[in-house]
Amino acid sequence: MKKHPIDKLFAQKLKEAEIKPRDEAWDKLQLRMQQNKKRRIGGWWQQGPWLAAAGVCLLLVAGWLTWRANSSNETHLAQHTHSTKAKAIEKQVAPKDEIKMEVDAPLAEQDQVAAALNKSESIKQMVRKNTPNTAPELKSAPVSPQPMVATLPDVQKADNQAKPENAPEPIVESPRIIAQTSTHPEITPGAKTVVLQLPELKETLVAANAKETIVEPRIKLDETKSMSDELEDDILNKPRKSTRMAKVWKQLKNAKNGERVDWDEVGFNPNKMLAKATGKERN
């Protein structure tokens, strides 16, 4: 198709036409390009308010989760320490069982046992004497705290009435036993109930044994309470020290206990929040 002369004229002349832009145009272009880059790089940052809101939500959720995890840890820890205590209790209980064994079993070598039942001191002596002999038997039928716990719910209600009576009595004795069996100074309430059984033992061995199993749950409850108190004290006290070493130490301890290590603590120290929350709960 032949081009129209006017089209040709304009096309020829204007195709190579140049109009020099002002110098500012380049600067403007540079600026626009920088803005474009910033917009691209800071794309997410420009959503500031939304991001902040999302951050706050995340923080709340994370805080709640850690708080919940920690509170569940408290009971977990309580159970854990309870089992260690139960071992300690076992030590105390062991003699009783031995006595029972001796009483029930025809293996009892000495006639004094029956007479000794009335006198606690003699029982203790007997127990000490007998322990080496009865040790193998005990091993065959070990006294583990868990079976006791399992029997708890049934007997607990029936013996609840007996407990209050026992409670006040042994306060004097407790410190001594605690010193021997436990490393925790605060176990006292739990230990007390354990000790309670000793005087009863003197009176009726079978009844005492039954009660031992009964008292166990109560011990557990008391211990969980005391342990949670302990833990709260820990939480309350440690942030006050608020040295980095203390924090790190706590995390180490958590790791050692096989609990979740709270890394957030290094960042914004949720322990202070936690301490406030638990402190309020406590009140």
Binding site: L14, E16, A17, E18, I19, K20, P21, A25, L29, M33
Partner: peptide
């Protein structure tokens, strides 16, 4: 190319300043 391309813009948009803005957008 800015000279030639600005000439293109000016052919469509008479105002040189406006054409320059279009040129900048075009370069972007």
């Amino acid at each position: 190319y800015s000279g030639r391309l600005l000439a293109v813009c000016v052919r469509y948009i008479n105002d040189k300043m406006e054409a320059e803005d279009v040129l900048i957008e075009g370069f972007m």
